[in-house]
Amino acid sequence: MPQTAAPCHNILPANGTAPILSFDALACVRGDNLLWRGLSGAISPGGAMRITGPNGSGKSSLLRVLAGLLPAAHGQVQRNAAIGLADERPALDAALPLARALSFWARVSGKGAADVARALDAMALTPLTQVPVAYLSTGQRRRAGLARLLIEDAPLWLLDEPTNGLDSASITRLESAIAAHRAAGGAVIIATHLPIALDGAQSIALGGA
C-alpha cells in the first residue's frame, strides 16, 4: 500500500535530506551586550561548519545555544539528532583512572567496554588508561574529553576550540576522527580560531574584527 509520509521537519535543504540541525534568526545577549544576531543555517548528515571570530565574540555561546544549554534571546533551533559537546571541561572524575572515568560515561550512554577501548585507541590514550585524570596534561585531558565524545556516538558533534593544547600528531588524529565521523553520516560544528582541516565546511564569522 503506498504511503505518503508527512514531512517531519519544516526546513528541508535542496538535496532533500533532513538537516541534523537547523537554526533561524538566532540572537544572543550576554549581560547587556548583544553578542550576535540574525544567524541562520542548517547542517546535514556529513556536513561541517566552522565558527570563527575573535576572543569574546560569542563562539562558545553559539555552541551552547545550538546544544540547547543556553536559551537564545531570539530565534529558533531545531535539533533532529543527539548532540555531543566537547569543550574545555572533559567532564571526567579527576580522581579516577582515565579508563574508569570514561567507563562511567559509557554506562550512562549504554555503551560497553569495547567502545571505551576504541575511543582510547582513536585518541592514542591507551597507554594512559590507569593514570588518574587529575595527572593528565592539558592536551591529554583535551583528548580524554574527545574520547568521551567518541564513546557517546552522537550524530552531531559540537567542538569548542578542540585543537587547544593539542600537539600536531593529536590534531591529525582529531582530523581523521572528524573525517570518519562525517563519512559515517555524522556532522560537526567547530568553534575555533586555529586552522583545522575541514573539507567543504560552511563558515560562520562572528564579531566585527
Partner: peptide, 14 residues
Amino acid sequence: AASGALDQYALRSL
C-alpha cells in the same frame, strides 16, 4: 558543575 558533567547530563536528555 565544575567538571562540565551537568551540561553533559543535560545533553543526554537526563
